[in-house]
Amino acid sequence: MSTWFPRMGLVAVLAVASSARATTAVVLTETEQALASTAVVVAHVTEQHVARHPQLGRAETLTTVQIERVLYGDAPDQVVVHQLGGELDGVLLQVAGDAHLQLGDRDVLYLRQVDGGWYLTAMEQSAFTLVPSLDGDALVRQLSSELLQRSPEGVLVPWDGDDASAPTLTDLSALLASLPAKEAK
């Protein structure tokens, strides 16, 4: 199949285990993530700072993203994504398995709004950087978590890394367009 090989490369990127922190989580498909999200967006990371979490007292990174396009659900033009972690008073808090949003990046983000705050739906699984490729904008993400999937036998088993049903932004847009529209809250 003529398009299989470049997609293999994209799968490789999706499955890379690199320098991000790790945790233990079940892999969500694009559809599962979208349905669990308030919105799926294309966004630019424009500002980032660390503050103290008002309840937990720990470092919290607040990342402002400018929404370029809403692929699914509903979101305002700009949101602030809350993530535990960051450096405060000389101590660096690292939360296993969370995404590292980088200033200047153009990302696809699965976002969930809870009690007025915006969060990544499934930590590092929910943040894809858009990288130009011969197939269009490729979706790449760093996955370092202990990722599991549900087996046909009914137990959690290691993720096989083969979830690239939407390896490009075009593919993802088409997939999300096929989902039922989110009900307005």
Partner: peptide
């Protein structure tokens, strides 16, 4: 919510 929702089994928070 900041720890990934229902897909997360466990998380370790490490400060250095």
């Amino acid at each position: 919510s900041s720890l990934g929702g229902s897909s997360t089994l466990a998380v370790t928070l490490t400060s250095t």
